[in-house]
Design a protein around this nucleic acid. Sequence first.
RNA 1: GCGCUCGUAGCUCAGUUGGAUAGAGCGGCGGUUUCCUAAACCGCAGGUCGUGGGUUCGAAUCCCGCCGGGCGCGCCA
Length: 619
Amino acid sequence: MSFDPLIILSERFKQAIAAAFPDQPASRDADPLITPGRNPQLADFQSNAAMPLGKALGKPPREIASAILAKLDLTAIAEPFTDASIAGPGFINIRLSAAALAGLLGRLDTPSLGIDLPEHPHRIVVDLCGVNLAKQMHVGHLRSIIIGDALARTLTRLGHTVVRQNHVGDWGLNIAMVTAKAQAEHAAGRLSFSDLSLDDLERLYKLAQRECSADERGLAAALRWWAHPKAVAELETQVTGAREELAKAKATLVRLQAHDPETVAAWQRIADITMRACLETCARLHADVRAEHSAGESSYSEELALVVDDLARRAVAEESNGALVVRCEGIDEPCLIRKSDGGFLYATTDMAAIRRRVQKLGASRVIYCVDIRQGLHFKQIFCAAHKAGYAATPTGPALLEHAGFGMVLGEDGRPYKTRTGENIKLTDLIDEAIERAGAVVAAKSPDLPPAERARIAEVVAIAAIKYADLSNDRARDYVFSFDRMLAFEGNTGPYLLYALARTRSILRKAAEQPGGPPAPTQGAGAPLRLTEKHEKELALALLRYPGALRSVAQSLEPHRLCQYLYDLAGAFSAFYTNCPVLTAQGDATRASRLRLCALTERLLADGLNLLGIETVDRM
RNA sequence: GCGCUCGUAGCUCAGUUGGAUAGAGCGGCGGUUUCCUAAACCGCAGGUCGUGGGUUCGAAUCCCGCCGGGCGCGCCA
């Protein structure tokens, strides 16, 4: 049986509602609408079921509430009902008894912290990171890595099998351009493949982009408006040059597709350099993105023609102005899967990816952690995939979800860039955070050994970056500010690390006393005596953990877990200042409070781990 | 032009899918340390939830109009 008050109360209320109105169909699947009490003064939990039920049955809600209470037996869990139990239009207020609270908390105190395995675990693909070859990782990748990793960790924690997929942009004309450029530079003796950095590659990439983009419109305009012959000549030269470069890139793409060894070797070198840097950065961010998670666009290249033929043959796709499109009801813009020149597009690759993820990897849920501006694109390909049957599983269509995220803005409210308008490299961002965190640690904790201080600065810095990202509504833009995230005040990663460090400090001190058990087992099994207000509130906060995790898994919004952990840390801080632990009056109280500390410690650490945030013992 | 999205305290943001007197943090003012980490805790001030209508017992939340911002709209990814 569950210890989660939300679930227990929901069950009890469901039965009571059914019993109170046995002949009413509306009462059979009425949602008990149990939530934590809006106002802690009035209730620990409340049910809002009476109001909608009153509407459905045409009776006053307070009358409904009385009828529910008459059938409701919560003697083992809650304090007796009073006149105040039914309040306002028909809220039903529930106050858990101290004994019940202690009992429930005791059942949360298991190795898994009360998180039960699901009856039917899912295989879930999480698409995250999504770097491009020959490009530095910048803030545009930050959220995909951080949010995707947190979602993957949370879903894993809930007992699902998660398959991470790094959909690397490693194919297509853009990549062929930089490959061609690198080969040309190599042939000219200006470049050595053996000591090539990602910075070099990015320079080549930009150069190739520029050289391949012809100013056709400029030339047309110049001709139409009888521009100066010299200007026209310059534009003609540019356009001719660009067309040549583009032709070279296309030829390179053909050679890549034909597995030409020399071309593939150059491409592979570019991929290796990029991926090495990518995985290093992910590791610095403590995000679990490894080589085996890479499933680049190149890995689908052989499947694209098959997919397109399949869609055309089964008439899922149709021709339109020479191109092949999939039309979906409710979406005006058709989904292009083949250009009129026969080339494939990124939607083609995404269709192939859905097919593989559901059919080969066995996913019943696919989560795309990608910029929210691609919302229309995902709407299209999800619809197209369903239409094509690619998302079908034996138990019904797989759930395809776009967990889109907003942009990272600077403090001026515009996309976060350097002063010169360049993307900010993630490595620079991380370096700066660590440097700033180091300065604070040195100021606040000068007595700690330098090596430990350095470690703390690193953990705190990454926690600050990630928590700032995760604690904001995923779908919305957020303002990036070192000062705010590293101010160590309020709803920040460092605040949570600090609360956790305080729990550990108490447990450590308790363990240092002669004859005591080691820190992790302090308070283990001690009877919980929840008499003080702050003890009860801490207990209630602890019990809400499973609900918070379920909510994240359903909504794919990690900021709900952040909010929960912040509330928990706040409840602990209040407990900490008001309820002495080591110097508590009486051994029983001391043991009970130690157990509360130990539970808080485990739960905070667990929650932070799900956010992909490492912890420290002291700070 | 069509579509999506946002507008909540001076600033940065929550608001449990329609519920009680709209909450945090920062900033401002004030208080707490011979006592487990003061990177903390407590109190005060600060709001016409962009705006006008509508739906109902009840709206920041749902619907419509308007104002303002952001973004996206077949042959780039």
